[in-house]
Write a protein that binds this DNA or RNA. Structure first.
Length: 746
DNA sequence: ACCTCAAACATTTTT
DNA sequence: TGTTTGAGGT
């Protein structure tokens, strides 16, 4: 009756059969980690645990869905749908919907993504009339996020001299005002950003013991995947939830921790051991995924990291082909090489496009690869960058949805009040905003009473506002009677968005129109799939936390996958290309300052390598187009950390192309443009960098690090670096071409 | 109020 | 390089 356990090896079986108590599974890459989680949940259910009492947290919603399907197959009935499964954010947002009144939020609160949160920050900076040079939106936003994640409230901020000083040095003394305003605005708009979803869940469980007990009783069994990538707040929440039953199972691999920049903390693994002294520990060390060459290459690389848990990943698989390192002359050549290799391998070994994946460090690198693949007529899909729901035209429609569901959301209202344009301009909007702030009310409520409010807006504009009010009001009334699809359809038509986009026959316009159609289809599918009455609000909740990875539309099509290494976590492909393995790109220039960051980059490379099952191709180029300039690059230090025994190098800067395909090359003329630009840049460099004005001992000033003195200068041309001893930030090595150092006299 | 064009800006990774 | 913001004209 337990014959499903025969699908597991002895290591895996041990972990699956452990039912009660705290346990940690350290699982090497490709060792069947997901398999263990899936079978363990099935095993729990088979042993009488009610699916309602299981909480399973994964890294993507897609992973959840796949796991649920597999559990369903193993246990053979429909119970699996009752398991609480999803990402931290989606599960917590569900809890917050249910308990929203405890934390003074309405049930239909809006979720702000990073873009929304940025634009809120931007408008606050503008309102406070602050200098954009010192108050950069991205920096301020990420600082707000850091504060929140460390539980530093505005009050605590003021009482923390060290943090206050940091902002003083960076000339951001008004940061506290932005921070306060940001928090107040979110509350006023009934909106939560990604951080709030975690923080408010923690506050909820921390302040209301009866709620905590409710969920402790509900979640008798808790399982967490990718535990190495949980952050501190997530850890605290889980600790609370698990405190009653202590049936907690975490699975992870410290060697694959790649989200420290987002607050992920390997310390969580160590904490686990002290929080639950009687924990059981399991190790999965046999790799089933990759050839011996790939496994050993990865092992050799990761041994250069000092900080790691003891683990020896091994495999019974055959040695396979050697890992190939290619040197290329430019990013475009590199891309062509990838496309040609794919073309060749497909013919020689009968691979499908689905069997290939191209990985890179930054999203911007995808362009060259895309171009080369298009020229070869190879289909590809690309993950990351702007996802479907981030597109402008989609966000515009979603802003309508949001306002209809939650009229407090001023940010969304601002977005649609003049889209499509209805003669309500910036001046009017500014006056409305001001009035709203004065009276501490939402813009919507000002518009609602526009006729009775003393405001400097002329009669004609007032009428336009009334028209707008009536339009939205109509939608609000409809939303109480209609399903989401009917309503969405009506919104797009009666707001005139449909006509406007339909009349736009430019290629971009057509694509926008198609995207709107796709959105409508999405709403329809959602409405049909769901069992209970589907409101627009439900739909918004659902999509707020969806990412590119979660879309399964493309699953049928045979396409090559392009994505960042971060996005490739948990995936595997027969053939993997990792491109752009160069100093300052991978490892990233920003990670060179500390050993910790560098080790994270190395783990990232480890993740990239271990995605491959059969063939692994690594490449770098000596010239690359970056920031609108050609930059010369050198081979990444990581390539020297690979084991020569399993690696072959192709040092010649030749194009990968067999004689039988050489006629194809005519379709890739080397662009003259690129050569011209190179010459131009060289002259440019000669002016700017060879004869730079700095010498050892000079006092300088840096935008972020303040004042300091130069202790050393090395390199030449565009790679000239200066070692600077900063008065407040210690020693740093900076590239002169990027760091805009100001020479201080005397 | 709206449109158009040029200048400025930005490049790490993401739920 | 590609996108976004702001100034200036209509």
């Amino acid at each position: 009756m337990n014959d499903y356990l025969n699908h597991l090896n002895p290591e895996q079986k041990l972990a699956v059969e452990q039912i009660d108590g705290p346990m940690i599974v350290i699982a090497g890459a490709g060792s069947g980690k997901t398999r263990v989680l899936t079978y363990r949940i099935a095993h729990l259910i088979k042993n009488g645990v009610n699916p309602f009492n299981i909480l399973s947290l994964t890294f993507t919603n897609k992973a959840s869905r796949e796991m649920r399907d597999r559990i369903q197959k193993i246990i053979g009935d429909n119970d699996a749908k009752n398991i609480w499964m999803g990402t931290f954010h989606s599960v917590f947002s569900k809890i917050l919907r249910i308990e929203s009144h405890y934390i003074n939020y309405p049930k239909n609160y809006t979720i702000y993504d990073t873009e929304d949160s940025k634009s809120l920050t931007r408008s606050i900076i503008k309102e406070l009339n602050l200098n954009k040079d010192f108050y950069k939106v991205n920096i301020i936003r990420s600082r707000i996020s850091t504060m929140k994640n460390n539980f530093i409230s505005p009050d605590e901020y003021v009482n923390n001299p060290e943090i206050v000083l940091q902002d003083k040095i960076a000339k951001r003394t008004k940061f506290i005002d932005i921070y306060k305003s940001y928090i107040n605005r979110c509350i006023k708009y009934s909106a939560m950003d990604f951080d709030d979803l975690l923080i408010n869940t923690y506050k909820l469980l921390n302040s209301f013991p009866e709620i905590l007990l409710k969920y402790q009783r509900k979640f008798e069994y808790i399982l967490i995947d990718e535990y190495q990538d949980t952050n501190h707040i997530q850890y605290l929440i889980i600790k609370k939830l698990a405190a009653l039953n202590e049936n907690i199972c975490v699975v992870g691999d410290d060697a694959q921790s790649i989200y420290a920049f987002r607050g992920a903390n390997i310390q969580n693994i160590l904490n686990f051991q002290s929080d639950y002294p009687d924990f059981k520990s399991f190790k999965l060390e046999q790799n089933y995924r990759s050839t011996k060459s790939i496994v050993e290459t990865a092992n050799h690389l990761i041994s250069f990291n000092k900080k790691q848990l003891q683990k020896k990943v091994w495999t019974n698989n055959s040695i396979g082909s050697s890992v190939v390192i290619h040197k290329c002359s430019s990013d475009n050549e590199e891309a062509k090489l990838v496309a040609n290799t794919i073309f060749d391998l497909k013919i020689r070994d009968d691979f499908f496009n689905n069997d290939f994946c191209v990985l890179y460090r930054t999203n911007a690198q995808s362009r060259a690869i895309e171009e080369a693949l298009r020229k070869k007529n190879i289909n590809y899909k690309i993950y990351g960058g702007i996802s479907f729901y981030q597109r402008k035209e989609i966000k515009d429609i979603l802003a309508y949805f949001r306002v209809i569901v939650n009229q407090n959301d001023d940010e969304s209202l601002k977005r649609i009040i003049n889209y499509p344009s209805r003669g309500i301009g910036l001046t009017t909007l500014n006056r409305l905003s001001l009035k709203a702030i004065e009276n501490n009310r939402s813009i919507w409520s000002i518009i609602k009473n526009i006729e009775n409010i003393d405001i400097n807006i002329n009669k004609g504009t007032k009428n336009k506002l009334i028209e707008f009010y009536e339009l939205i009001q109509k939608f609000i009334l409809m939303s109480q009677k209609c399903d989401a699809y009917t309503l969405a359809n009506d919104i797009i038509h009666s707001s005139k968005i449909y006509t406007e986009l339909h009349n736009d026959k430019t290629p971009e316009g057509v694509s926008r129109f198609e995207n709107i159609q796709e959105l409508l289809n999405g709403v329809k599918t959602f409405a049909e799939q769901s069992e209970d009455e589907v409101s627009l609000g439900n739909y918004l909740q659902e999509i707020a936390l969806i990412t590119d990875m979660d879309n399964e539309n493309d699953n049928e099509a045979d396409k090559i996958t392009l994505m960042t290494i971060h996005a490739a976590k948990g995936l595997e492909f027969p053939n993997v290309f990792v491109v752009g393995i160069e100093e300052n790109l991978f490892p990233s220039m920003l990670s060179l300052e500390s050993e910790q960051d560098l080790e994270e980059e190395r783990r990232l490379f480890y993740v990239a390598i271990t995605r491959a099952m059969k063939n692994l191709f690594l490449s770098y180029s000596t010239f690359r187009f970056r920031w609108g300039q050609y930059i010369d690059c050198s081979e990444s230090r990581f390539l020297n950390e690979l084991d020569d025994k399993y690696v072959v190098r192709n040092e010649q800067e030749v194009h990968f192309s067999k004689p039988k395909f050489s006629f194809k090359k005519k379709s890739f003329p080397t662009t003259n443009r690129s050569l011209k630009s190179v010459k131009k840049i060289e002259n440019h460099e000669a002016e700017n960098y060879v004869g730079h004005k700095f010498s050892i001992g000079d006092r300088i000033e840096h935008q972020n690090f303040g004042k300091g003195s130069i202790s050393n200068i090395e390199g030449f041309g565009s790679s000239t670096k200066a070692c600077v001893n900063f008065d407040n930030f210690g020693e740093k090595t900076l590239l002169l071409k990027f760091a805009k150092l100001k020479l201080l006299n005397n």
